[in-house]
Amino acid sequence: MRRNRFIYAAFTILIIGLGLGSRAFSSFLPASVNAYLGDALWAAMIFTGCGFLFQTMKTIMTGIISLSFCVIIECSQLYHAEWIDRIRDTSLGGLVLGYGFLWSDIIAYTMGIVTCTLIELLHQNIKKRR
Rank of each mutant, 00 (worst) to 15 (best):
I72K: 07
T117L: 13
F6Y: 11
A24F: 02
I107A: 11
I15Q: 07
W83P: 15
L121F: 01
Y36P: 01
L67I: 02
S104T: 14
P30S: 13
I16F: 15
L14V: 07
V33F: 13
L102N: 02
T12W: 10
L92I: 14
T90C: 12
L37R: 04
I113E: 00
Q55A: 14
M45Q: 12
S26A: 13
F47K: 05
T62A: 09
I64Y: 09
R3P: 03
W83G: 06
A108I: 05
I87M: 12
I15K: 02
L78K: 11
Y36W: 08
I72R: 02
I126L: 12
V71D: 00
S76T: 11
A44F: 09
P30G: 09
F25P: 03
L118F: 04
D39V: 10
M45P: 07
L18A: 14
I113C: 06
I15T: 10
D89I: 04
G94M: 02
I106R: 05
I16H: 08
R130G: 00
A9V: 12
F101D: 11
V96N: 07
I87L: 12
T62Y: 01
I113H: 05
A31F: 12
F52E: 05
I16T: 10
T90E: 08
S66V: 03
S104Y: 11
T62N: 00
E120C: 01
P30H: 15
A9S: 12
L118V: 12
R130A: 02
M1R: 06
A40P: 11
